[in-house]
Amino acid sequence: MAVILDLVVQNAQMLLVLLLAPLLTGFVRKAKARLQRRRGPSLLQPYRDLLRLSRKETVLAEESSWLFRVIPYLIFAATWVAASLVPTFAAGLMFNWSADLIAIIALLGSARFFLALAGMDVGTSFGGLGSSREMMIATLAEPATIMIVFTLALLAGSTQLSQVAAFMLSPAVGLRVSLGLALVALVMVAIAENGRIPIDNPATHLELTMVHEAMLLEYSGRHLAVIELAASLKLLLYLSLIACVFLPWGQAQPGAGPAAQLAGVGAYIGKLAVGGLFLAWFETSIAKMRVFRVSDFLGAALMLGLLGTLLLFVSRSL
């Protein structure tokens, strides 16, 4: 019985992230529009877009290989698994033992690898350009992520997300400058990984500046829908990751009743809304960087992560 209940909760989480992801994207767009004194599209617009795309005919380039057709589903699967591993509304889910930070990074890394391959598959110049830029960003963002994971793992004694969250809830945390540094670094990495504004503009198809969109130019129809959904999921994943690690309050504890689970869902949606508002505000108040400044931005994130680890070593060795 308990196993079935656990399975139900785990499935609820998988469905929840999938259903909430387009809503979050729509919410960020709406908040941004309101901040710019526009009315903005409806909150449900991303769902409609996905529906429209999935009904449309898929056009494939003549030179595309089988890889090109498979990749959207690979990306989607990897991102969805990663997103449903992060504890969102409840700690102690059934697959928590696999909710490891390094596993999540690996899943996202493989999704990115496939996306870059897809960008180069057809052989148009934009795809290659987007892939090479994406890889440049990734080579800087991944070390920074690893440093953040080190910091968290050194503090919590584990890379498992539920244990990290439990540690953050316990009074043993204390006042840590390293955690602040890790938070800032993680936010910077999240902005870069999701192609948000100082790095890449998700709303543009201006050829000189695009990174993520350049790789998707050849996709259409249901393939495009799946990739868009994966991008929304990735944004949701990073926000949930930040919420889970740094604001774990309100998560339903293992073995809690349905009321606690529902309260956890409410808290989770609240956290997502706050995160989305912050993202919209940040994107409105900052200008896009030149591509060559990206290394400065992510270098700062890497530096913060490294500094956090170093500071932690000092206080541990005393």
């Binding site: 006042l175 840590r176 400058v177 390293s178 540094l181 913060l304 500071l311 000092v314 206080s315």
Partner: peptide, 10 residues
């Protein structure tokens, strides 16, 4: 103390 000193380095 750690927070402030670390902040100074930052």
């Amino acid at each position: 103390a750690h927070l402030f000193a670390g902040g100074l380095v930052l």
